[in-house]
């Protein structure tokens, strides 16, 4: 069944017809070509598919596409501004916070939420916050370093 929906994705409004059997992950990747949204386990365990839905991180593989009717979605593509990388993405690059890069978009979206939500945080908080994002290259140390760096950018006013 095709379901008509209205939604905002990466600051743009869409009127779409979606197949009720598809997930948000499918919609973003296959229909809208937002390939930052990675298909991993497809059962909510790995976090590679994390996007922000109404400002909160969710696994897009567990959301049915018609459920985003009236909602707002943000992916890594939406963090870019005028073709420039977001300061958080820069911090990931500068700190070598990726090896194969499979987990990276999910890590970026979760940490974007965490940095925006928390005034201050410890390494322990970051580890707990990233519980739902697995990195099978296990490069967690650099990811945590990148998040701390990004927080400095934000405090210095270099952020959007």
């Amino acid at each position: 069944m095709q379901v008509p929906i209205n939604t905002r994705i990466n600051q743009r409004s869409y009127e779409l017809e979606v197949d009720a059997r598809t997930t948000l992950l499918d919609l973003l990747r296959e229909k809208l070509d937002l390939k930052s949204v990675h298909r991993g386990c497809e059962e909510g365990e790995c976090g590679a598919c994390t996007v922000l839905l109404n400002g909160k991180p969710v696994c897009s593989c567990l959301v049915l596409s018609p459920q985003i009717n009236g909602a707002e979605v943000l992916t890594v593509e939406g963090l870019m501004k005028d073709g420039n990388m977001h300061p958080l993405m820069k911090a990931f690059v500068e700190n070598y916070a990726m090896q194969c890069g499979y987990c990276t978009p999910g890590m970026v979206m979760t940490s974007y939420y965490l940095i925006n939500t928390w005034d201050d945080f410890t390494e322990e908080d970051i580890r707990k916050g990233l519980e739902g994002n697995l990195c099978r290259c296990t490069g967690y140390t650099n990811i945590i370093r990148a998040i701390r760096e990004a927080k400095k950018y934000k405090d210095a006013g270099y952020w959007w």
């Binding site: 069944m1 009720a20 059997r21 598809t22 499918d26 296959e30 229909k31 049915l64």
Partner: peptide, 18 residues
């Protein structure tokens, strides 16, 4: 596009969101 049931395809579903 794949449907959410993966390889176990069901031909039709109706979706109702009151």
């Amino acid at each position: 596009m794949r449907n959410f049931i993966g390889s176990r395809s069901i031909s039709k579903i109706s979706y109702f969101c009151p």
